[in-house]
């Protein structure tokens, strides 16, 4: 894992494996807490970020040699911007899934064991955008933050 801080924020690079993804997600959450993000909001960011990164590891780089994932974080006074990029496969149909939640109103045997990732992301971010640029996926997440008085 590679970490670089600058005046506007910080950047993290790591290989798209489950173990490196875990360390990357933890590192971002730790940095954001150290930079003053509230415990509650840092939790929201960590959940959404984990789902987005897991998608890259499990789908974008599925069945191919895991490449790099880059996370860029910029904290402003009233918002947090996170950009995730990878060089894996594009999202299906080149666009964001709708993020409909899997239904839990069912009997035990039919309860969903997956299908919550995009739904959780959509619930927790203020805005999400996806772009395919040449061979890269760019996912931008915005989290609005309460103004500090």
């Amino acid at each position: 894992m590679q970490f670089n801080a600058d005046r506007q924020g910080f950047t993290l690079n790591f290989r798209a494996t489950e173990m490196e993804a875990r360390e990357g997600i933890r590192a971002v959450a730790t940095q954001l807490r150290q930079r003053g993000l509230s415990e509650d909001r840092a939790g929201d960011v960590e959940i959404a970020l984990a789902e987005a990164i897991n998608n890259v590891v499990e789908h974008a780089y599925a069945d191919i040699e895991p490449g790099q994932v880059r996370i860029r974080c910029q904290m402003r006074s009233n918002k947090l911007l996170i950009r995730i990029s990878d060089q894996g496969r594009p999202l299906p149909d080149g666009q964001l899934p709708k993020g409909e939640p899997a239904s839990v109103d069912t009997n035990l045997a039919d309860l969903p064991e997956g299908g919550f990732g995009w739904f959780l992301i959509q619930q927790l971010v203020s805005e999400i955008r996806y772009e395919r640029r040449q061979n890269s996926n760019l996912l931008s997440l915005r989290f609005d933050l309460p103004k500090v008085s």
């Binding site: 984990a50 897991n54 969903p112 064991e113 299908g115």
Partner: peptide
């Protein structure tokens, strides 16, 4: 911390218990 994979694993654990 838990993510949707972990949630799925807890749901699967309940299913394994049976009715």
């Amino acid at each position: 911390f838990i993510d949707s994979s972990g949630l799925g694993a807890i749901v699967a654990s309940m299913k394994q218990l049976g009715g």
